[in-house]
Design a protein around this nucleic acid. Sequence first.
DNA 1: ACTGCGTCCTGGGGGC
DNA 2: TGCCCCCAGGACGCAG
Length: 305
Amino acid sequence: MPELPEVATIRGGLAARVPGRRVTDVEVRHERATRRQPGGAADVRTLLVGAVPEAVVRRGKYLWLPLAGTRRALVVHLGMSGQLLVRDPAAAREPAPAHLRIRVAFDDGGELWFVDQRTFGHALVAPLVPTPDGAPGGRGSEEPALPAPVAHIARDLLDPVLAAGSRGRAELIARLRGRRTGIKRVLLDQSAVSGIGNIYADEGLWSAREHHETAAGALTPARWRILLDAVEAVMSDALAAGGTSFDALYVNVNGASGYFDTSLAAYGRAGKACRRCGEPIVREAFANRSSFRCPRCQPAGRRPR
DNA sequence: ACTGCGTCCTGGGGGC
DNA sequence: TGCCCCCAGGACGCAG
C-alpha cells in the first residue's frame, strides 16, 4: 500500500517530469476516481485542460500539483493500489492497462496515467486555501496554502517542522499523549500525524518494542520520542530504498517496484521468527484489520517507565 | 470535540 | 477444476 515513502518516491518522479507541461486533454475512464470532485469527472476536465502544473507537493499520503496562476491544485490520493505513471509520447500510445482510471495528456504528446485496481484512490482539482495558524501538526507553516481536501491532514514525520529533537516534535508528542486511545490508532490517525499506514505503524512499533494497544497517555514522552523516531527511521530507510513493494501493487512513476519488502520485520510475518528474539510473530485483529507483533518483544500491559 | 465503527472496492488465494 | 468467501485497507461519514 502506498504510505509516505511510496508517495514521496512518486512525488520525486513527478517533480522531475511533469511541472511546466500544459494539459491538453483529460479522460476520466472511471467515475469513482473523481468522486470527491464536486461536479465529478466533467469538472475535473474543465478545471484541468489548459492548466500547467508548476510543482509537486506532498503531505502525508496526499500529493498535489499547484496549477500555475489559478490558486488551485490537482490533488491525488493513491488509496490502497493507486499508481501514477508518466508516459512519454511513445509509451502513451501503448494499450491502456486494465485499471487505467484517468489519463492526462500533455502538449508534447506525453501522458500522466492514474491506474488504480481497487479504486480507493481519487483525484480532484481543489482550491488552495490559506493554512490556518496552528494547523494540524504544529505552527510555523511554510506553505502559503493547502488544497481544501488536505487542510485537515496533519504534518508528517519527515516535515522539517516536526524534525526529531525539535520543538515541533515535542509539541506533537504532547498532543499525541492527550489522545484517549491506543498508540497504534494515534499513529494511523492522519489528523494527528500523517503518512503512517498499517505497514509502517507495525514496523515502528516492533522497532520500538511497543504493544499497539498501549494507551497513548500511558506512554511517557521519552518513549513516544523513541517510537516516533523508530517510525521515522523505518520510513526514511524505505524511502532510501525506493519504497516498499511487499506486493506488486506499488510501483514508481516509471512502473518499477522498490526493494524494501525484504526488510519488513513484523508486518505480514505471522508465524515467522521475530528477527530479534526468534519468537513467532503473531497476527491479531485490530480495527477490522490486522496487527502484527512479537509477543515477547512487544508484550501487552507493559508499564511506562 | 473526540472516538470508533461501517463502508466503499477488486482480485488473489485458500478451502472444499 | 471450479466456486465461494475471506482478505487486504485509507479515509471519510456518522453515531454515540
